[in-house]
């Protein structure tokens, strides 16, 4: 196999892995605390608040593991309709930063394999 062929194979592999890893970087809790602040999570305030209010509660919502293991359907019941998008329209994703900024962050609720319970809550790019 010549050099050119190897180069093509390596590029393909890099392209594939970079494409797959594109979605795999949630914002760290440390960075989220610095960027968004940390207020106590309150269901009602989150449901009625705008993105700025939601953003401040995101870190506490994650670190308290408030929704982990709870029924997946409870998220929308508690927090209301979502305004972001992550992988599937049925996954609740709430915008946390200004929608007109270059990078928009959102709070995402990931279901378990059967879509019954909340597996994790993360801050990801919209």
């Amino acid at each position: 196999m010549n050099k050119k062929m190897w180069l093509i194979i390596m590029s393909l592999l890099i392209l594939t892995t970079s494409c797959f890893s594109e979605v795999s970087k949630p914002m760290s809790i440390k960075k989220a605390e610095q960027l968004l602040g940390k207020n106590k999570f309150d269901v009602k305030a989150f449901q009625t608040g705008d993105y700025k209010i939601r953003a401040k509660m995101a870190v506490d919502l994650i670190t308290s593991k408030y929704y982990i293991g709870k029924p997946f359907a409870d998220v929308k019941k508690d927090l209301g309709g979502h305004d972001g998008y992550f992988e599937n329209d049925a996954i609740p994703a709430y915008i946390l930063t200004d929608k007109t900024s270059k990078v928009v962050w959102q709070l995402v609720f990931i279901p378990d394999d059967k879509w019954e319970k909340v597996r994790s809550v993360e801050i990801r790019k919209n």
């Binding site: 797959f20 990931i110 279901p111 378990d112």
Partner: peptide
């Protein structure tokens, strides 16, 4: 799971 969110796919 390390690369894509397989869990976000429907059954």
């Amino acid at each position: 799971d390390k690369y894509v969110y397989f869990n976000t796919l429907t059954l």
